[in-house]
């Protein structure tokens, strides 16, 4: 069993892109959502944050995105503060709900960030069309979001997050509301996107198989107070496919994650 201590949760290969140092987040009511978190994430990694509700995984993602500010500690994203990184459009955020604008067509939804960010008209169009093709939805460009299935909506949301070519992709349980079959298909598609675009992905989930299948490293978090319990590297070979889920190594790592989750308080976790 290879468990790394949280403070040693360092990126293995490439240069460090995201660095979290002693970050604590206490909400207004006094709830300690995240306690003394330390984490380094390297360029091009696919890191999953896993844990039960209240473990601070979404809090950590929102801190990285500068949607909230930490009570103490520091975060660096490519040498910049999260606020600067947000202003520099360093990340695309994919929420649990697709969060598409119902009044915009699929293509217009992918165009939205490009319009807000002031890309020239032709480039906007070119990028948005390319992104829709990347997620395989070019035929649905003129449909409205509510005419699409939940899985397709989430693919639009991913295309939108990638449209302005951010370094980082933050994903907060993006497939949590989908059925298992759709989820596994989208997992595979996400891995393909990750390989093709070379983005650094930070992915929040409460599904162990999903985390193991997708990640290069898994950050196991535990609640009350939310903290990083351990970081587990995933050495499953790339590219991964449906068979990966049936290998012995897959189950070994899943077991390792499950035990780590149990160790920190033993709350029930979705398997």
């Amino acid at each position: 069993m290879t468990t790394a201590n949280a403070s040693e949760g360092s990126a293995t290969a490439a240069r460090v892109l995201v660095s979290v140092r002693n970050v604590t987040m206490i909400y207004g009511g006094g709830t300690v959502a995240l306690k003394d978190a330390n984490l380094d994430i390297g360029q091009g990694e696919f890191v999953s944050l896993i844990g039960p509700s209240g473990c601070g995984k979404t809090t950590l993602l929102r801190l990285l995105a500068d949607l909230i500010e930490p009570s103490s500690g520091s975060i660096s994203i490519g040498g910049k503060s999260p606020a600067e990184a947000r202003r520099d459009r360093a990340y695309g955020y994919v929420f649990q709900a697709p969060t598409l604008m119902e009044w915009r067509t699929v293509l217009a939804n992918v165009l939205l960030p490009l319009e807000v960010m002031g890309f020239p008209r032709e480039e906007r169009q070119r990028r948005a069309e390319a992104m829709l093709a990347l997620v395989g939805l070019e035929k649905f460009a003129d449909k409205y979001p509510w005419q699409l299935s939940g899985g397709m909506q989430q693919r639009v949301s991913i295309a939108r997050a990638l449209s302005f070519d951010p370094q980082l992709l933050y994903m907060d349980e993006p497939f949590g509301a989908l059925d298992e079959i759709t989820r596994e298909n989208l997992n595979l598609e996400l891995l393909r996107l990750w390989r093709e675009t070379g983005k650094t992905v930070i992915f929040v989930t409460h599904s162990i198989p999903e985390a193991v299948f997708l990640s290069t490293r898994i950050v196991v978090m535990t609640p009350r107070p939310g903290k990083i319990e351990t970081v587990i590297p995933v050495d499953l070979p790339q590219p991964r496919d449906f068979e990966t889920r049936e290998t012995a190594r897959f189950f070994e790592i899943a077991t390792e994650v499950r035990e780590a989750l149990r160790k920190g308080h033993g709350y029930e976790v979705e398997v």
Partner: peptide, 21 residues
């Protein structure tokens, strides 16, 4: 929050979200 992540200003919030919705 999506618009916050795009660093949208108030005018853009009105134009792209508040008014159309």
């Amino acid at each position: 929050e999506l618009l916050t992540s795009y660093n949208a200003d108030f005018g853009q919030r009105v134009r792209y979200l508040k008014l159309p919705s």
